[in-house]
């Protein structure tokens, strides 16, 4: 069964399917037939090969972004003041 579906994948995998598998591979181990279908597609498709490479840069840069504090202290003071004002409106003496 897996050989047959591998052959079918080899013949029919579209770039959209291939991109989905490249993405899925970040989260889970692909099945045998998915791996073969993807491998065959990547062998003939420059666009999807580039997508796979570029995704490495994107994922790695995104993890670096996660480590950065995205609120500057000025922004944060102003934001906390606005929130405190909102709280006083809602909770302050009636």
């Amino acid at each position: 069964m897996s050989l047959r579906s591998a052959c079918r994948n080899l013949l029919t995998l579209s770039c959209e399917d291939a991109a989905r598998l490249v993405s899925d591979a970040q989260e889970r181990r692909l099945t045998f037939s998915e791996r073969w279908g993807l491998r065959a597609h990547l062998a003939i498709c420059t666009g999807c090969r580039r997508f796979r490479q570029q995704l490495k840069a994107i994922e790695s840069a995104a993890r670096k972004l996660a480590g950065q504090d995205c609120v500057s202290s000025d922004q944060s003071v102003a934001a906390r003041e606005r929130i405190a004002a909102g709280l006083r409106d809602r909770l302050g003496p009636q």
Partner: peptide, 29 residues
């Protein structure tokens, strides 16, 4: 046809190095 409408371009370089670039990170954000 579920093919790339515009084929991804060649960014060149090593993905790990691209990821280090501050410009790339800002563009990603």
């Amino acid at each position: 046809d579920r093919q790339w409408r515009e084929r991804p371009g060649d960014w060149g370089g090593d993905p790990a190095q691209i990821a280090e670039s501050a410009e790339f990170q800002a563009a990603l954000a």
